[in-house]
């Protein structure tokens, strides 16, 4: 059963959704894009396919659609699916991985590719898609594998961090669930290379074949879904802009202080 299965959905409907998703997957061709197909001017969110949960085709499409709708970013609507050891990952700075069960250990090649992805400036958004609550198995296995890539612990991202206001002002991180209001992250250099949400963000974005949202959002309903959508926008914008909003908040100050001989004061950072 899909993790973003609507609790009130009948078995027929479930089968229908599964069929549509399967057809979409086949017709849309969820395959690693060939190098010649790289559209460098557009942003593509690549799905890191780890076989720890359902294929997030619908959430990624919704995500791209909402980015195009709400922001100026040119986002490609066709998600790309890539295996962790696939070096084509290195053409996609923004990766999305979700799971509701334990991850299989990554191969050494996958570890190397992901390590390089992070060190090159890439970002991985990890979504714990546990059904009723965050999957402990996925959580533990993900942390284990992450340790293999970057031997550091995830840390809680402060509510004032730029990721919470890089586009929308948010005071918490929610998804289909709202178990934890926190985001966790792993810093590489000056940016969070890994952002981890435990609230099934993809579940809030998943749509039915006919357009409606596939899963109920609890406990906040549609308002919470909107917050989840906004979080998705912010996460992608953070990957694209990093701490731009820290500077941009002070842009008028910076402009008015062009006269200063010394470098402009460092913009405030919340973390």
């Amino acid at each position: 059963m899909s993790p973003w299965h609507h609790r009130g959905m009948s078995p027929w409907h479930q089968r229908g959704v599964a069929l549509v998703v399967a057809l979409l997957a086949l017709t849309a061709g969820l395959r690693p894009a060939p190098a010649t197909a790289l559209s460098a001017a557009a942003v593509q969110i690549a799905w890191l396919k780890v076989n720890a949960g359902p294929d997030p085709v619908s959430p990624l499409e919704t995500w791209a659609q909402e980015m195009r709708l709400r922001t100026s970013v040119a986002v490609s609507g066709q998600p790309v699916a890539l295996r962790p050891e696939d070096r084509a990952i290195l053409r996609y700075p923004l990766l999305y991985m979700s799971g509701d069960r334990a991850l299989s250990p990554f191969s050494d090649a996958a570890i190397a590719v992901l390590r390089r992805h992070f060190s090159s400036g890439g970002t991985l958004i990890v979504d714990n898609a546990g059904r009723a609550e965050a999957s402990a198995a996925f959580d533990a296995s993900f942390r284990r594998e992450l340790q293999r890539i970057i031997p550091q612990q995830l840390q809680k991202i402060a509510p004032g961090h730029v990721v919470f206001r890089t586009f929308y002002r948010l005071d918490r991180a929610v998804g289909r669930r709202a178990d934890s209001h926190d985001l966790e992250g792993l810093r590489v250099g000056n940016h969070y290379a890994v952002l981890y949400t435990r609230n099934d963000l993809g579940g809030a974005l998943a749509r039915q074949s006919l357009g409606g949202y596939a899963l109920a959002v609890v406990p906040g309903g549609e308002m919470q879904r909107e917050l989840a959508l906004r979080l998705a926008v912010n996460l992608a914008m953070y990957a694209l802009c990093l701490d731009y909003k820290d500077d941009q908040t002070h842009v008028l100050y910076l402009l008015s202080h062009r006269r200063s001989a010394s470098p402009a004061p460092a913009a405030g950072r919340e973390e």
Partner: peptide, 8 residues
């Protein structure tokens, strides 16, 4: 004109 990987 828009955030992109090139601007990033």
């Amino acid at each position: 004109g828009q955030p992109s990987w090139d601007t990033r």
